[in-house]
Structure formats: structure tokens, C-alpha cells
């Protein structure tokens, strides 16, 4: 077991190296079908996937699902207990808690997803550039990465978001500005491990341009760890976004967002504990789902790797 693991990633492309670059694709394609099969057999990962899809559906169809307007104030029914009109009760302004939770899924998921795109758009090209070019380009990029890593990430994000001013967009910008570093590092490492392989040499000998080599031969090999990393990071981003919102930096009232709802509900802890219980549960469930899926994906995409422990 120990021996086979040492070969690590990148072996998947190996059989193809002798033949042609085209073969590499069929190999990896066969690999991805097998990976999907393995993923579907993993019950926990499947559970995560189902939760994620369900929450996404809730977010998309929020107007049809929510029983009430999430921002409609009903001062007659402040802090109402769960009932027929308000299934989970109301908050301190008499707004429907369930509806706010449902609309809150939109804020959390879309902010996290957008932030993730921004992070990958910065991190992956810079990491590829650093790994592929080497030399001073690598040095420049990685020293910058080192500098950013010298800050505890959350603190820097907090301060950037705070300086830019409250708002979900600024939270997103702040998190992207800090978070891409991890992607650049991982991609750089992957590129370094792939670029000396024979199939790259073969492609170069065939006259493929440098950009073509990066796009067709290097990036596909970086893809699977990226998918795993991105899935796990969705959970972390959702936690970070709701944390910053909890502090008051993210979504601004009256917009429904889980972290902000938690902090709104806090003063009414004694009278209406549901106001802080449910948003927290929502955040945790979604984060857990992404963790489960990410964990399953890692096992499925890299079966030789360190299996679940």
C-alpha cells in the first residue's frame, strides 16, 4: 500500500506517454467514468450531493417555495412561535423565519460560488504560470504568495472587507484577495510534477505551442485536485462569509443572509432561541454537505491516494 501510494498523482497519464497525446485523453476519460461510479457508491458523498442539489433548488425556486415575503415586516407578530402562517415563527421585526432562511440560501450559495470563481480565476493562472515558467516569474509569484501567507487569512479578509466597507460584494472581494494563494500553490505543485513528464515532451516534439501544451496537457492533469479543493472550499467559504456577515460586514439589512440572521436573533436568545438555532443549522448543513462531497470526490478521483480514514 505504502509503495503504490508513493507514485502519487500523475501516474494516470503515464501509459499514454509512449503512444500519443490523444491516448491520454481516453485514459483520463475512462478514469472519470470510473470515478463517477466510485462516487455514486459512496453513500456519504451521495448524501452530500443530494443536500447540495436540494439547497440549490431551494435557492433557485425561493419565490415559489417561501411561504411569505422574507422582508415583509409584521410588527403585530414579532417573535411569534412556529404556527400555520409562519412555519418556523418570526424574528424581532415579525418577518417569516422560514422564508428568510430560504432566501438566505441564495445569498450564501451565490456569494460563495462567485468568490470561488474569482479565486480560481486568480489562483489557477498564476499557479500555472509560476510552475510552467519557473525562474524569476515563479520567484516573483511565489514570494508574493509567501507574503500573503504571512497573514492569518481570516484576519486579512476581515480587515480588507472592513476597510472596503460592509456589503456582500466587498466580503467576496476580500475573500478572493486572500484565498487564491492556496490554489496558486497547489496548481504550481501539480504543474511542476507534470511538466517534466514524457507526454509533454512528446507534445512539444509534435510542435504543439506552449499555450496548447498548457491548455491541453497540463491543465487537465490539474483538474481533479482542483475539483476536490474547490468542493471543500465551498464549505469553508460559506462558513467564512456567514462569519463575516455575523460580524456585520456582509449582507446588510434587510437582506436575508444566514450569518446576519444569526446575529440579528442573538439578543432574543431567551425568548426565541429558534432565531439563532435554525440559521446556524442551515450553515452547518450546507458546509457539511460540501465537506462530505469533497471527501468523497477525493477518494473517487484518486483511488490510489490516501483513502478515507
Amino acid at each position: 500500500m505504502g509503495l503504490s501510494r508513493n507514485f502519487g498523482a500523475g501516474v494516470a497519464g503515464y501509459p499514454a506517454t509512449v503512444e500519443s497525446a490523444g491516448q491520454a485523453e481516453t485514459v483520463s476519460r475512462g478514469g472519470s467514468a470510473a470515478a463517477l461510479e466510485r462516487l455514486l457508491q459512496d453513500r456519504l458523498a451521495l448524501l452530500g450531493l443530494i443536500i447540495i442539489l436540494a439547497v440549490m433548488a431551494v435557492a433557485v425556486f425561493a419565490p415559489y417555495i417561501a411561504p411569505n415575503d422574507p422582508t415583509k415586516v409584521d410588527l403585530q407578530h414579532r417573535l411569534a412561535p412556529p404556527g400555520t402562517q409562519y412555519p418556523l415563527g418570526t424574528d424581532h421585526l415579525g418577518r417569516c423565519l422560514l422564508s428568510r432562511l430560504i432566501y438566505g440560501a441564495r445569498a450564501s450559495l451565490s456569494t460563495a460560488a462567485l468568490a470561488l470563481w474569482a479565486i480560481m480565476l486568480i489562483g489557477i493562472p498564476l499557479g500555472t504560470l509560476a510552475g510552467y515558467c519557473g525562474g524569476w516569474v515563479d520567484n516573483l509569484i511565489m514570494r508574493f504568495v509567501d507574503i500573503l501567507l504571512a497573514f492569518p487569512g481570516l484576519i486579512l479578509a476581515l480587515v480588507i472587507a472592513g476597510t472596503l466597507g460592509p456589503g456582500l460584494l466587498n466580503v467576496m472581494l476580500a475573500l478572493s484577495a486572500v484565498w487564491w494563494v492556496g490554489y496558486a500553490r497547489v496548481v504550481r505543485g501539480m504543474v511542476l510534477s507534470v511538466k517534466e513528464k514524457e507526454f509533454i515532451l512528446a507534445a512539444r516534439a509534435c510542435g504543439t505551442s506552449e499555450l496548447g501544451i498548457i491548455a491541453r496537457h497540463i491543465l487537465p492533469n490539474v483538474l481533479s485536485p482542483m475539483i476536490v479543493l474547490a468542493t471543500l472550499d465551498m464549505g469553508k467559504l460559506i462558513l467564512a462569509i456567514s462569519g463575516l456577515s455575523f460580524l456585520g460586514l456582509g449582507a446588510q439589512p434587510p437582506a436575508p443572509e444566514w450569518g446576519a440572521m444569526l446575529s440579528d436573533g442573538r439578543p432574543y436568545m431567551q425568548a426565541a432561541p429558534q432565531l439563532m438555532i435554525y440559521p446556524g443549522l442551515a450553515i452547518m448543513t450546507v458546509a457539511l454537505a460540501f465537506n462530505l462531497l469533497g471527501d468523497g470526490l477525493r477518494d473517487a478521483l484518486d483511488p490510489r491516494g490516501n483513502t478515507r480514514i
Binding site: 464549505g235 462558513l239 456567514s242 462569519g243 455575523f246 450569518g259 444569526l262 446575529s263 442573538r266 436568545m269 439563532m276 440559521p279 446556524g280 450553515i283 452547518m284 458546509a287 457539511l288 465537506n291 462530505l292
Partner: peptide
Amino acid sequence: LLGASLPGFWLGL
């Protein structure tokens, strides 16, 4: 799993 998914501020509350 829970520890990685639990929002710290919620746990605190």
C-alpha cells in the same frame, strides 16, 4: 466532520 462544518460563532451562541 462536524468540527470542520460547524460555524464557530454558532457554537459559541
